[in-house]
Design a protein around this nucleic acid. Structure first.
Lengths: 344, 344
DNA sequence: CTGAAAGCGCTAACAG
DNA sequence: CTGTTAGCGCTTTCAG
């Protein structure tokens, strides 16, 4: 790997000059500029990013902490983050915490501020205190999907109104005439799922329905979890005409369970999820769901992080701030239909 | 962010000593050691990875080039790579080339040797010449899944016998009595798919079957591609009793197509894929497939890369070498069954 | 066992 | 316009 000074030597100038042409700083004579360019080409020179980072006091990467990229939602999100990061000239380091706060802390302590300039957190089940500590140490942290637009957390974040998402799902089911609805909530008492759940009940209340009769089950955020929960729900309440899952994966599991129980979706049972992951489109029947602005949230998060980084380097006041993503919207596909009139 | 010398000052010693305690080099008196440790704790010191990288002439990251993490196979692979990398103390930079050789080159030129110590390549559709160039510049490159164990490419690689995989798929179908089989080949003339395809024909030949009657269609490596291809195949050849797809995603698409055509899988049509991605397990019916040793390949690739890096830093001869992953194996699930006896 | 000094490759003032 | 001079934070000889 050729270095800057080798280029300089070959071009008959000093490293500073080479650096200037590299960064298009102008102040370089056209003639020397040419010589430098030639030398760069001849030596196949590439700037050493780590060295540059050290000299500039910045880093060319940001980190994305996710619980596990094996959950199909995260890759979609990660892809959007990577694209946005690349637009800003930064590379993405993927950190799978596997829902383990200890692993998460290890990542934060090693990476934050030394290898990556900022940290994006997406449901990684990290200790809030750890996050605040890294922020205090001077590395910006952004929560990618905060669920309560009206109550900013103690950290910069992108807010997504998940309560609204739950509400939309509820309204849709109600409009189709469903009254006996089973609810599957993604397991972790993760605020995200709670908000969606609450939104759903908002819709019920608004329609004057007694939420007391609505069976609710908590499940793991996987198809298997949804499958299991659906079977239990249906066994205990054979009269259910619809299932609302706070996430697409369990909703997909509900689809499978229905098939195995010989129920036709949507004729015998309607199923609705939230998020609109790719699989929702590909499922049979295609899943009706509430689409969350995933890509937009990723872009907002990256931009916010970048702003914080720049503010930090200008020593501007960095106060916890929040960007709000667009509203979620209902995507009607083939897994929901009018409630069957006849009760068993 | 506290620095090494701040720690040294506080501990009343020099940076060199702090460095020694940090790296457990021994040669430090127990007393000073304690003082250093205290100072580190008090200042909440963390080593600056970029600075260390520069000083050591190494980097704490490796890069994984994939076509697009949106294809569900890659996250599974990426997760395995990340785990293996972490074991060796390295971080993973994810590079989605989006199948664009230009984007891939940009990544290589920027990252290789400056930010990441080595590059793992997983079907990213990169220019072979670009890869060789980065290797020549001194950054090890490893191909994660090379399809011909008997013909090493010009680069270090992990070989997976995809021809065998295709053969296993073929044998399974033949044993079930299928003779009229439609073949869907993942679009890119990617060697991986060609090898699988060839293996399938090996099985046919071994059984003395005339391959001339076997309809073959190329499709994009997606469920949609498989869906479309299956419909075309079945329209042109209504007598097909089975579909072999060189990859799981198109096979999953075949499942959907069959459902839409009112065909019962596996009664009316058997479907088999290759890879065994998570979705294969979750599909309805669950997909019979040939499981490729994904995790093992990821681990071998990371280990090989690490060996190359170390060999390079010791200036040992680095000749193109190949590690061979275990054989793929058939996983029979619910999408294949005995061929229906009656021909239309 | 500990300190002093040089340097990794690059940037950023500041001089000339 | 170009060169000089300091570092960035850490590691690593080599002396003491």
């Amino acid at each position: 790997m050729a270095t800057l000074s080798e280029v300089a030597r070959r071009a008959g100038c000093t490293p500073a000059t080479v650096s200037n042409v590299l960064r298009n700083r102008g102040r370089v004579g056209e003639l020397t500029r040419q010589r430098v360019l030639e030398a760069i080409a001849a030596l196949n020179y590439r700037p050493h990013l780590a060295a540059r980072a050290l000299a500039e006091g910045r880093a060319p990467t940001i980190a994305l902490m996710v619980s596990s990229i094996a959950n199909p939602f995260y890759p979609e999100f990660a892809l959007a983050v990577e694209r946005a990061a690349r637009m800003g000239g930064q590379f993405l380091i993927i950190c799978n915490t596997n829902d383990d706060p200890v692993a998460g802390r290890a990542y934060l302590e090693q990476i934050a501020g030394t290898l990556s300039e900022g940290v994006l957190v997406m449901n990684a089940n990290l200790d809030f205190a750890d996050l605040q500590k890294t922020e205090t140490r001077g590395t910006p942290v952004v929560l990618c999907m905060w669920e309560r637009p009206l109550e900013p957390p103690g950290l910069p974040c992108v807010a997504v109104d998940f309560r609204l998402a739950g509400q939309l799902a509820g309204q849709h089911l109600l409009e189709l005439g469903h009254r006996r609805i089973g609810v599957i909530v993604g397991s972790k008492a993760s605020g995200i799922h709670v908000a969606r759940h609450n939104g759903f009940f908002d819709a019920l209340c608004a329609a004057g329905i007694d939420a007391g009769n609505i069976p609710v089950l908590h499940a793991r955020d996987t198809t298997a979890g949804g499958y299991q929960a659906t079977r239990e729900l249906l066994e205990a309440h054979p009269d259910l005409t619809a299932i609302f899952a706070t996430n697409d994966l369990p909703a997909l599991g509900a689809l499978h369970a229905a098939a195995d129980l010989g129920l036709d979706v949507p004729r015998d049972l309607s199923v609705i999820g939230i998020t609109d992951i790719q699989l929702a489109r590909e499922a049979r029947p295609a899943l009706t769901t509430v689409a969350v602005p995933t890509v937009e949230a990723a872009e907002l998060a990256v931009m916010l992080l970048r702003d914080l980084i720049e503010a930090g380097s200008r020593d501007a006041g960095v106060e916890p701030c929040m960007r709000v993503a667009s509203a979620s919207c209902l995507v009607v596909r083939d897994s929901t239909a009018t409630a069957r009139a006849s009760l068993p």
